[in-house]
């Protein structure tokens, strides 16, 4: 792969891709930050805030690059705070409500396992700016996965109650995992230009990590039924509007103010 910035690729597809990476990080980071001060142990409060902080930092990088390559003068903040739900490109999984701590951890694990594979693949992107962001983010996400994987195992193989909660979390969230691996025209464009992996290509590794972890956690992997989708093309769940109403409140209520 060459390291020339932005090889020939459809710019709309590239913009789309950068929004997807940034929005996944932003919305999951936002969800995690809802826990602040309410986690079941002080160490968990610290760890969740730390993970949220990493994700917000990654958001700044991905959306910053998206705005830059769009060339219309939009900053990362403009993209985060002034788009409506239909313009967001995160997968549905990350906007799922926190639920109990088990559901938050399971959502994190299912996402982290995908996120790490994705970032590792992006480290060899033909675009150096993408590769650089992925390099930095992959280090952080490797730690996120270590942590969420470990806790899923310990709680799955803990008490009958913790096992039940983790099983329910897994069953509830499973239909939202398929979207991570469903490619579209934009993904094909990027893969063809060597900018990023085809989503389908990450499935085998994810299946491996998730399968081994669930076995160790004594949790049964759900059957692959119908998979929910839509976030990647801007069709979200009802939760998204409320996330944005909260997140964007100040920017919307005081247009043009600087903070």
């Amino acid at each position: 792969m060459s390291s020339a910035p932005f090889p020939t690729v459809d710019q709309a597809a590239l913009f789309e891709f950068l929004l997807r990476m940034g929005d996944n990080a932003l919305i999951l980071g936002h969800r995690l930050s809802e826990w602040c001060g309410h986690a079941p142990a002080l160490e968990e409060d610290i760890a969740l805030a730390n993970t949220a902080l990493d994700l917000i930092g990654q958001t700044q990088l991905w959306l910053g690059l998206a705005g830059e390559m769009e060339g219309k003068g939009r900053t990362a903040d403009n993209l985060a705070y002034l788009r409506d739900a239909t313009e967001f490109r995160n997968v549905l999984l990350v906007e799922r409500p926190n639920g109990d701590f088990g559901k938050t951890l399971m959502r994190q694990f299912l996402f982290d396992a995908w996120h790490l594979s994705m970032l590792q693949a992006l480290r060899s992107s033909a675009d150096k700016r993408i590769a650089d962001i992925a390099e930095k983010a992959a280090k952080e996400v490797a730690y996120h996965l270590d942590r969420s994987r470990d806790l899923v195992i310990r709680l799955g193989d803990g008490t009958a109650e913790s096992h039940r909660r983790m099983r329910e979390a897994l069953d509830d969230l499973w239909p939202y995992t398929g979207e991570l691996f469903i490619g579209d025209a934009a993904d094909e464009e990027l893969a063809a230009a060597g900018l990023g992996p085809a989503p389908e290509s990450l499935k085998a590794e994810w299946d491996g990590v998730v399968g081994e972890t669930l076995t160790e956690a004594t949790l049964k992997k759900p059957a692959d039924g119908y998979m929910q989708r839509g976030g990647k093309r801007g069709v979200h769940t009802e939760h998204m509007g409320f996330i944005l109403a909260e997140m964007q409140f100040l920017q919307r209520a005081y247009p043009g103010a600087t903070w």
């Binding site: 932003l26 936002h30 930050s33 809802e34 602040c36 001060g37 309410h38 002080l42 409060d45 610290i46 805030a49 730390n50 949220a52 902080l53 917000i56 930092g57 958001t59 700044q60 959306l63 990362a76 903040d77 985060a80 705070y81 909260e246 997140m247 409140f249 100040l250 920017q251 103010a257 903070w259």
Partner: peptide, 25 residues
């Protein structure tokens, strides 16, 4: 923590998260 989800910019959100994390520390 009441304002982390409503912080007005990504930078302010990150700073506030880091601060509240420090308090827990």
């Amino acid at each position: 923590g009441n304002w982390i989800t409503r912080a007005p910019t990504l930078e302010r959100k990150a700073i506030l998260l880091a601060k509240v994390q420090d308090e827990a520390g």
